[in-house]
């Protein structure tokens, strides 16, 4: 005898979730499947020839330009992620352990405001700061410290890393903060009580328990940075493309949709693999916690 109520609940749940589900299937799953299909098709002039081929993938994987751009994207994303997470951790720690409970909401509010202000403008502002006639150069020339504007500030990978690290800084704080907030404070007292120093308690108790938040922060920063389109355009001056720019160029400028699709799918696969590695770590830490 099975339980009829479970079926009723399942029906109700499915009915309830169906509007957003149908929306996601039509506007997300179907397009993703389409580019997956495209990536196995041949490119003709102004049209896509529906014939199965692995040629696109072979072309992508053997293309030295793709290798260079993919490695650059990975490098930038890793550098940005490391910088944001390392810089964010002390702030999250401060928020969780030092700030008085009644002041926490205000601090979080202050940190989230830049998070919601125009991303495009935040990126552009770094161009203003680092540019040829930018804030730094004009200030330095004005003070007489340099005669010629410094040319190495803009249009390079370092500038892109700084810009992205700034743009995604608040993203890293919140997940770490949430993880730290969940830590039972008596565990830390227990650590101290059992004879560990403050530093060792942090190392042996706080940090392992905060790891799920750190890994969440890593993913939250890593995924959008690796797929960033705006920063290479503005800060890189269009001359240092990342993977998103390459996908866009193939899809639109070169109008080679199968190739663009294969690039997009490959990039997604790489991002997925990296994310899964992180999630695997996360699961290990979560198991330790339970």
């Amino acid at each position: 005898m099975s339980a009829p109520r479970f079926d009723a609940e399942a029906r109700q749940g499915l009915a309830m979730v169906s509007p957003p589900l149908i929306y996601a299937i039509l506007l997300l799953a179907a397009p993703l499947l389409t580019i997956l299909a495209y990536s196995f098709f041949k490119d003709g002039y102004l049209e896509v020839i529906r014939e199965f081929t692995l040629e696109n993938y072979r072309a992508v994987w053997t293309d030295p330009v793709f290798h260079k751009i993919m490695l650059r994207s990975l490098g930038v994303a890793v550098a940005v992620t490391l910088a944001t997470v390392l810089l964010a951790f002390p702030v999250a720690y401060f928020l969780s352990f030092v700030v008085k409970p009644e002041r926490k909401a205000l601090w979080i509010f202050l940190i989230t405001i830049p998070f919601w202000t125009s991303y495009l403008i935040r990126v552009f502002l770094w161009k203003v700061i680092l540019g040829h006639n930018g804030v730094i150069n004009s200030s330095l020339t004005g003070l007489g410290l340099i005669d010629e504007p410094l040319g190495f500030l803009l249009f390079n990978v370092q500038a892109m890393v700084i810009t992205l690290a700034h743009a995604y800084a608040p993203f890293a704080i919140l997940p770490i903060y949430v993880a730290l907030e969940k830590i039972d404070r008596s565990l830390l007292e227990a650590g101290r009580d059992l004879g560990e120093s403050r530093l060792m308690t942090f190392w042996r108790v706080t940090l392992p328990l905060a790891m799920p938040g750190v890994i969440a922060a890593t993913l939250i920063v890593f995924i959008p940075t690796i797929g960033d389109y705006v920063t290479p355009e503005l800060i890189g001056g269009g001359k240092i493309p990342m993977i998103a720019n390459m996908v866009q160029a193939n899809m639109l400028a070169l109008d080679n949709k199968p190739m663009g699709s294969a690039l997009a799918i490959t990039a997604m696969l790489i991002v997925t693999v990296v994310s899964l590695i992180f999630l695997f770590f996360n699961r290990r830490f979560l198991r330790v916690q339970q």
Binding site: L27, L28, A30, P31, L32, T34, I35, Y38, L219, I223, P224, I226, G227, D228, Y229, A244, V247, Q248, M251, K257, G260, S261, A264, A267, M268, V271, S275
Partner: peptide
Amino acid sequence: PLVLPEIIVAMSLLVV
């Protein structure tokens, strides 16, 4: 979409 680079969402929607 939370964990998908926006360029992928945009491109795949555009293609369709």
